[in-house]
Design a protein around this nucleic acid. Structure first.
Lengths: 239, 239
DNA sequence: CGTTGTTTTGACACTAGTCAATGGGTGTGG
DNA sequence: CCACACCCATTGACTAGTGTCAAAACAACG
């Protein structure tokens, strides 16, 4: 069995500026990290929580990646979003303290758990923490609006290009290469996320390769021409 | 010119329980309503704010209805959501105090404005208010997730049925009939919202009429069989 | 080295989009 | 009060883009 990981420290965590501690004083961060519960690492397919479970806390992604999904009446999984390191999971459950979606791990991953009651106590004491939580909630709404825009009215080509650019940007913010990364999910999951079939994802990847815009080797993605990729989504860009 | 409307009172507003005052003590509501600025009523097509404008405050819908949208590089409007009475507009702008979408009125409508600086001051003083704002933010994320689910993977028929059921539910919560209501937007706007063409909306309405599930007369919608409408979306329902 | 799951490719079907014409409702001006 | 114009909604004919199904290629794993 995996031993319980060592106690997390937000002070030394390189994700701190993307996560809840952003904007906090050192002594405030020290108070915050007291309430963080470490969880054993999860592996591919492990469920972090299921839809309709009671929400006892939020989760911050420490490493790896997660997938938000629901299962419909016919047993088909519908992927609704992805979580990368530094992002908070469970924000939609603060309303009634019940999870509205299921979340599982796309690879070996770890999270910090923030128990809700203690987080609420702390927010009352540390205005900066409350402020940062509000900002993160608002940012999540803004990100959702972008996703709604993407799904609303676009061709498969634009959806796939936007998906790649979204990952490029998010990996870039994490300090990784924004032109070379590994997909942590199968085609089927990308397809479900974009409202397409996995065959369409495959065909779009092939088409982008033939135009020399990207190179694909299984889950390994190399973006050869970021500008051309950007140009694909240009006509749908809002102002 | 329309005279400035009389000072709003949250204490007598029948929407208070759907809106920010929910869960507050009477004296807290009295403090809240001091900061509310009334705005002149807006009419069909009037812009509440434009994308990229600085966000100086949130808006609560008092009457009528609004539409969230963006305009793409080709000048085409993309509708992203609707706001009915009791709902808060601008929640996605708390992050960087800049609006990410434009909002206009679908009919003669009015809003209460909540200036951001004064709202923040008040949240710091009234924990219940902060708590309610957090709940509303979380609820908005949850609603967004439902919309993402709807757009992801569904047929025109399911989308249209879901749209009607969504309106039915929201009007019901407002105390109006949930089987008989007027659409405040043209087919084109519904189409854009659902990621369909206006012709498809028309055809789906016609099909539902032929099955006697609804009756449509211009913007007047009568739901004759709520169960059958619900049955249409059943196979895509998540659990 | 065989088994299994994933990805790719091809053939075909079907849903929804586009374009165009028609119909109906509303408002304005003669 | 009627005629006209305009906008919105509906309907039909056709098309294009994706989905579906099936088979083959490929990679990962035990």
């Amino acid at each position: 069995m995996t031993p319980c990981p060592p106690k997390t420290s937000c002070l030394t965590c390189r994700l701190a500026d993307l996560c809840l501690p952003f904007g906090l004083q050192i002594n405030e961060i020290e108070t915050l990290e007291i309430i963080i519960k470490n969880k054993r690492p999860l592996h591919l397919g492990d469920i972090l929580f299921n839809k309709n479970e009671q929400c006892l806390g939020l989760f911050a992604v420490k490493s790896g990646s997660f997938r938000r999904f629901v299962i419909n009446a016919e047993g088909v999984e519908q992927t609704l979003g992805f979580y990368l390191p530094g992002e908070l999971i469970g924000l939609d459950a603060l309303f009634d303290e019940r999870f509205n979606c299921s979340v599982d791990a796309l690879e070996t991953s770890s999270v910090c758990e923030l128990p809700l009651t203690r987080l609420n106590e702390l927010c009352a004491k540390i205005p900066n923490l409350q402020y940062q939580l509000t900002r993160i909630l608002s940012k999540e709404i803004s990100t959702n609006h972008e996703q709604i825009f993407l799904l609303s009215n676009n061709s498969a080509k634009i959806k796939v290009a936007t998906f790649l650019l979204m990952l490029s940007k998010r990996y870039g913010l994490l300090g990784y290469s924004h032109t070379h990364f590994n997909l942590s999910m199968p085609r089927q999951t990308i397809a479900s996320f974009l409202g397409l079939s996995n065959e369409t994802i495959s065909r779009q990847f092939t088409a982008l390769c033939k135009e020399n815009i990207i190179s694909v080797n299984q889950r390994d993605i190399q973006i050869n021409d970021l500008d051309l990729l950007q140009a694909i989504i240009e006509p749908c860009h809002s102002h």
